[in-house]
Amino acid sequence: MRKSSRPPEPGARGLLRLTCPCCGKEFGTYLHVAQMSIGCRCGATISLERGLAPYEFQCSCCEFHAKGKTNIAEQEFTVPCKCGNPITLHWNKDTRRYTE
């Protein structure tokens, strides 16, 4: 597999699960274009420049496979699948990502 000679894209795009550092609200979003930050409904700005950890799951109900990034820094957190099934993700310190 050949690596791209392009530098990594700044910011983040794709599936994101974020928590606001000001109000604590947790929400999911999908960004089609890379962004450096995103606004919360409380008016705070959430940085997407660094500190995002990857996560991945496959729903046992609908078989939906998702890959995304999060700024959540807990040992585990629950994310709703698109079918509504709650998926609990756990931090794996060896792979430095959240998985089921």
Rank of each mutant, 00 (worst) to 15 (best):
M1I: 06
M1L: 10
R2Q: 12
K3G: 05
S4H: 15
S5W: 10
S5N: 15
R6C: 01
E9W: 04
P10Q: 09
A12C: 05
R13S: 08
G14I: 04
G14L: 08
R17T: 04
L18M: 03
L18Y: 01
T19A: 07
T19P: 00
C20A: 03
P21N: 05
P21A: 09
C22R: 10
C23N: 06
G24L: 03
E26Y: 06
F27V: 04
G28E: 11
T29C: 10
T29I: 12
Y30R: 04
L31F: 06
A34G: 11
A34V: 07
Q35Y: 07
M36I: 13
M36R: 12
C40M: 04
C40G: 05
R41W: 10
R41D: 11
C42I: 09
C42Y: 10
G43N: 04
A44G: 01
A44I: 06
T45Q: 08
T45E: 12
T45W: 11
I46N: 01
E49F: 05
E49W: 05
R50E: 14
G51E: 11
L52H: 01
L52Y: 02
A53T: 13
P54E: 07
P54S: 06
Y55D: 00
E56C: 09
E56W: 12
E56G: 13
F57T: 04
C59S: 12
C59G: 06
S60Q: 14
C61A: 15
C62R: 13
K67S: 11
G68Y: 01
K69E: 08
K69W: 10
T70M: 05
N71H: 13
N71K: 10
I72E: 02
I72P: 03
E74V: 07
E76T: 15
F77H: 06
T78D: 09
T78G: 07
V79L: 04
V79S: 00
V79R: 00
V79M: 03
P80C: 10
P80K: 11
C81D: 06
C81R: 05
K82L: 13
C83E: 09
C83Q: 14
N85I: 07
N85W: 04
N85V: 08
P86H: 09
P86Q: 13
P86S: 09
P86L: 14
H90C: 08
W91Y: 14
W91P: 02
K93W: 13
T95C: 09
T95A: 11
R97V: 04
R97F: 01
Y98G: 00
T99Y: 12
T99S: 15
T99H: 11
E100G: 09
